[in-house]
């Protein structure tokens, strides 16, 4: 369960700024056969892929559409991001890495439905595209579709066990599905590689608690707190475990800390919609979009466009001095 609004132990940022590792991973199919793919795509155009596609792929691809008109004019960052995404669709309508990049950009900027279509289109072309599965899994998790999340995350991890966020997210999805016995090894594997991720320890603590292994639950929640001392929820986990272990004094202490931290968490009132972001966050997000797009153009032998996009990444909001308006309430029910 994503405890938005209260401070859950920090989860690793979903796939971190994409290009370096992720793009390589995303483009495993492309990178390994970049030359062949580029030649084929260049030579045969989209027709080659269309020829390969079954009707479902065609349907998914056909559903993709430009989004330029979707954003209020005052939201500079979103509009710029959409322009990048639309450009990717226009220039590489059937390239899986471009569809992935487009989906990633749209997801980051709040266009969930269109982002999912783009990612699904990428997967329709490359079924084991791990990074796309990871993003779809994270999105499904965020939306409470835990079965879908678990499915995508498992497929992603099967293709690429090093996906940065999939392990802890899969653990969370499995916990929420009541499949704690499956969650434990997933989380333990993740922690073995990423020992300092508080969210993983927290989810492991949840799993142990559900399994009535309160000693282990307490240890995991304390470990989560060691890595994120501001987590009120981990305090609650410790308190519950101590309650069950009969350690009333410690339970009381952590319950007090839980209440204090939750009360101090200003995000509680912000759970329903992102309240906005700082100018730096906006710039960072947009820079990531430009950078990701630049890598796609570079991989497809279009260096001039790639260079221009890199320049944009260096200064993504030229002239912007104030934070942009809050993004639209995507996902707000």
């Amino acid at each position: 369960m994503t405890a938005r609004g209260t401070r859950t132990p920090r989860r690793p940022t979903p796939p971190p700024p994409p290009p370096a590792r992720a793009a390589a991973r995303v483009s495993r199919w492309v990178v390994s056969g970049l030359v062949v793919g580029t030649v084929l795509l260049a030579g045969l155009g989209g027709g080659f892929v269309w020829w390969r596609s079954d009707r479902e792929v065609a349907r998914v691809l056909a559903a993709l559409r430009p989004l330029a008109a979707e954003v209020p004019a005052d939201q500079v960052e979103r509009r710029a991001a959409i322009e990048v995404a639309d450009r990717l669709l226009r220039d590489f309508p059937t390239a899986p890495e471009a569809l992935y990049a487009r989906g990633r950009i749209l997801l980051r900027h709040g266009f969930q439905a269109e982002a999912v279509k783009s990612l699904e289109a990428a997967i329709a072309l490359v079924p084991d595209l791990a990074a796309a599965h990871e993003l779809l899994g994270l999105d499904a998790l965020q939306r409470g579709h835990y079965e879908a999340a678990a499915g995508h995350l498992q497929r992603g991890l099967a293709s690429d066990p090093t996906l940065p966020a999939a392990g802890v997210a899969l653990g969370e999805a499995l916990n929420n599905l009541g499949r704690m016995r499956e969650a434990v090894p997933v989380l333990e594997r993740f922690i073995a590689v990423n020992p300092a991720v508080a969210a993983a320890h927290f989810q492991l603590g949840q799993a142990w608690s559900y399994l009535h292994e309160y000693g282990r639950a307490k240890a995991s929640h304390l470990e989560a707190l060691r890595h994120d001392p501001t987590s009120g929820l981990a305090c609650y986990g410790v308190a519950l475990a101590c309650d069950r272990l009969g350690e009333k004094e410690m339970a009381g202490e952590y319950r007090r800390r839980h209440v204090e931290l939750v009360a101090a968490d200003r995000r509680i009132g912000q759970r329903r919609v992102r309240e906005g972001q700082s100018a730096d966050e906006a710039r960072g997000a947009l820079a990531a979009a430009y950078d990701l797009a630049a890598r796609i153009y570079a991989a497809n032998d279009r260096p001039a466009e790639a260079a221009a996009l890199r320049a944009s990444a260096a200064d993504p909001l030229p002239g912007a001095t104030a934070p942009p308006s809050p993004p639209a309430g995507a996902g707000r029910p």
């Binding site: 369960m1 939306r143 409470g144 579709h145 835990y146 079965e147 916990n175 929420n176 599905l177 009541g178 704690m180 559900y210 029910p333």
Partner: peptide, 12 residues
């Protein structure tokens, strides 16, 4: 979660 209430009842 243990009781299975996380199955298709969260999105709404």
């Amino acid at each position: 979660a243990r009781a299975g209430l996380g199955v298709r009842a969260v999105a709404a």
